[in-house]
Design a protein around this nucleic acid. Sequence first.
DNA 1: GCTTGACGGTGACATTTGTCAGACGACCGG
DNA 2: CCGGTCGTCTGACAAATGTCACCGTCAAGC
Lengths: 201, 201
Amino acid sequence: MIKVLLVEDQAMVRGALVSLLGLEPDIEVVGEAASGQEALTVALETKPDVVLLDIEMPGGDGITAGARIREALPACQVMILTTFGRPGYLRRAMEAGAVAFLVKDSPARELAAAIRRVRDGERVIDPGLAAAALSAGPNPLSPRECDVLAAAVDGSTVGDIAVRLHLSEGTVRNYLSSAIQKTRARNRIEAVQRAQAQGWL
Amino acid sequence: MIKVLLVEDQAMVRGALVSLLGLEPDIEVVGEAASGQEALTVALETKPDVVLLDIEMPGGDGITAGARIREALPACQVMILTTFGRPGYLRRAMEAGAVAFLVKDSPARELAAAIRRVRDGERVIDPGLAAAALSAGPNPLSPRECDVLAAAVDGSTVGDIAVRLHLSEGTVRNYLSSAIQKTRARNRIEAVQRAQAQGWL
DNA sequence: GCTTGACGGTGACATTTGTCAGACGACCGG
DNA sequence: CCGGTCGTCTGACAAATGTCACCGTCAAGC
């Protein structure tokens, strides 16, 4: 029996995935969690063989949760199951020690197959996605540029961002400007969208 | 047996929901579709009692697909199952003749329960969501303001939008300005986000 | 018939945003 | 110890954005 911990914030999707995995005779869902925080707690309680993690969740994203779990339970394999196949997500997931990266677009039966391949010591990564992640290259934005761009996603003005990050307005404008150029965008909105599409924020 | 057509673009979620409904002895998934267009075709083939529709899908959104299906098959009940409980979505879904509106945050067992309640002629709507939709009031944006705001989501400049909608730049600026005021935002980015949060785009 | 609102437009204006050049200290690798 | 990068800041400038006042048409409603 492969013991699986399932981490996904949308309760109905989580329940549906449990029932999907319930069809497999050699897979047992030993725990569920709805956030990154909760994931670590439940992992320590249930000591699963495999954790299946969503990325975008309120209360701790799946990638950092995966890293924490690997620290605490080195025997436990981390798999990512996400809606968005963003190159930066894949890259960060791999750096955090994940051994599989699945997107929810792929057919349902691939989930159990991927879990078994992970149990057998394989890595499971969509080849097209891997190519995209490699060809896109690493995140060109400096940490601070990321901060400023991330602070701009909600439509804040330069003044707002400056206050929030304790910077001068000119500095904020400079970071935004260089982020716009590095993303080859025409304004901050495009810059934010491109950075998000790459998984850089 | 209640015959259900399941419409959801993410294959893995769709498959998981099928397996979830497969646990219910009185429910049978007679068809699946991954887009609004496909939904209508499959509905005509399979003549389900109930269609379960996601809203945000590439290739025709679920609400208009639901309206089309109601036209073609008046006996078929339309249920919406969506990630986002946006007031405007609920309102539009009701106007399009939907009898249920579920969010994927709610527990998995509520899905089958909701389907049975719909079979019994009931409507199923989250009370809190209904209150939000009523208190928020209807969409204050004029159709054209919606168009212009929707054209601004991807970071297009005023000039781009003007060309795309065959308008003068001044007109575009005027519509954006009035949309910003009606949404009580400070700039177009906030306006877009508030309008999206309400489900007005 | 008159009013109202949506639609489309113009022109002027203030503000915000984006760009550039430059300056300073910190830190890191060679 | 020297060059490069990063972070921070300033000041100045051009371009884009947001606001306002105003004008016209047209269709719907009272």
